[in-house]
Design a protein around this nucleic acid. Structure first.
Lengths: 239, 239
DNA sequence: CTTTGCAACTGGTTGATACCAGTTTGAGTT
DNA sequence: AACTCAAACTGGTATCAACCAGTTGCAAAG
């Protein structure tokens, strides 16, 4: 299966942009069109993608330029894009699934997942690593009633969301994340191979489906010195 | 000056979507094409815009549907939720505008704002308080060329974004926020009335306009024990 | 010499058309 | 009744063509 043309253009342009300086001018759309042998539409789709991701900006009548947003972001993460960022820096991001057990969740967790007192939940413990250094330690709780017969083997070489979607047809729509700065206690510091008392990010994520029902609750702990949480916020222009 | 066709389609579809139920199916692209008397290209541009903003989601081979996200989408997340949270707890949130000065920004700030070496920026220092206790200390940088003649008096009883919009017609579209856990140094701890070494959140926000050009850069510091950063993440259903 | 104004660029919008790739459905077969 | 498979949907990718709308530079007019 061949990748779409525009994705090849995106990939190629991305390589070029990395070598360029901030605010440098890119070739015009018509020049790119000739260079890549594709239609202008395809070029524009690629440029639009790069613009959305903040790598470039376009000025009507002037041209297309390398954005400074993208540059000087050496060691940033973002809990979702974290593996991509690592890859971009030439590092290897891995996820270690430590354990998956059926447990009786605490009252607090049960409340987050809308569970009755007797209902159980899977607890998945994971460790995210970059170049074999621990970065994020996370506990994920999944209602057993929604995901019966979940096994660790399901998660091999797949993302959690991928499994939920493919095995259970579950589409997650929206997640709330609460981020707090904390000092590591002894147990936590050992997981992340850090000193006790080091600042770190505690991230509570609650994912809901299209019916507004909770399908997942995760508590993550990320090393403060090696992890930056990134979020993107769209402003409502109509108001 | 007439608005582009696709913007009219977006506006019209937005009205329709508001009246529909979550997960209801929209007419197919070919049907919309006939209804609005425009090309499929134009329809797709409109749908893409609505998808980006989280109002709809599209499934290959199935159709286009109303997203439930839109139903409860009160505010953009992050630092803005802070006054609401305080209000919910029956507390009083205030903002103190400490100073507004025209300064020569550091190289790092200048790069974030796409400024030439000689161009200046306003630096606005603010302190957010809840029940008169300091919670967030922030420095905001605004390019002088974009917002000439900005005065502290403009900000009385108004939000910063309100002033930028009303006085300068500036519409912000998108903001990136990077959140990091840090330990307070001496100077910082005095601003927030906290102990040296306490964990706190450092938030870098960069706001861009509809041309992808930076209009504001803010560095905030929030007390770790009294502040939680909240964000909403919209999942991409097509992936 | 300055100024005007018109190419000749730039990206932005729109149309018409074709085919690819998933999903659903129903007619025909078993 | 159950199965199969092709037709008829859905959105996704791609091309070619034309014109609109800002910006810039240079050549002709003053």
């Amino acid at each position: 299966m061949q990748k779409p043309l525009y994705q090849q253009v995106i990939f190629n342009l991305e390589q070029q942009i990395k070598k360029m300086e901030a605010n440098a001018k890119l070739p015009s759309e018509r020049q790119l069109l000739a260079k890549y042998g594709v239609s202008r539409n395809t070029i524009r789709i690629a440029l639009q993608n790069l613009e959305e991701r903040g790598l470039i900006y376009r000025l009507h009548g002037k041209g297309t330029f390398v954005s400074s947003i993208y540059l000087n972001r050496p060691n940033i993460g973002g809990i979702y894009s974290f593996s991509e960022e690592a890859k971009k820096a030439g590092k290897k991001a891995t996820t270690k699934n430590c354990s998956l057990e059926l447990v009786q969740p605490s009252e607090r967790i049960a409340k987050q997942l809308n569970l009755e007192p007797c209902q159980q939940a899977y607890r998945l413990i994971r460790l995210r690593l970059v170049d074999n250094q621990p970065r994020i330690y996370s506990k994920t709780y999944l209602p057993e009633k929604l995901f019966p017969n979940l096994h660790l083997s399901d998660l091999e070489n797949k993302t959690l969301y991928g499994v939920l979607r493919e095995k259970y047809g579950q589409l997650s729509v929206l997640a709330f994340e609460d981020v707090q700065a904390v000092s590591l206690n002894e147990a936590e510091s050992s997981f992340l191979d850090e000193k006790v008392g080091s600042p770190s990010l505690k991230i509570y994520r609650k994912t809901i489906d299209d019916k507004n029902l909770p399908i997942e609750f995760t508590v993550s702990l990320a090393r403060g010195d090696k992890f930056i949480y990134r979020s993107k916020q769209y402003n409502d222009l109509t108001k």
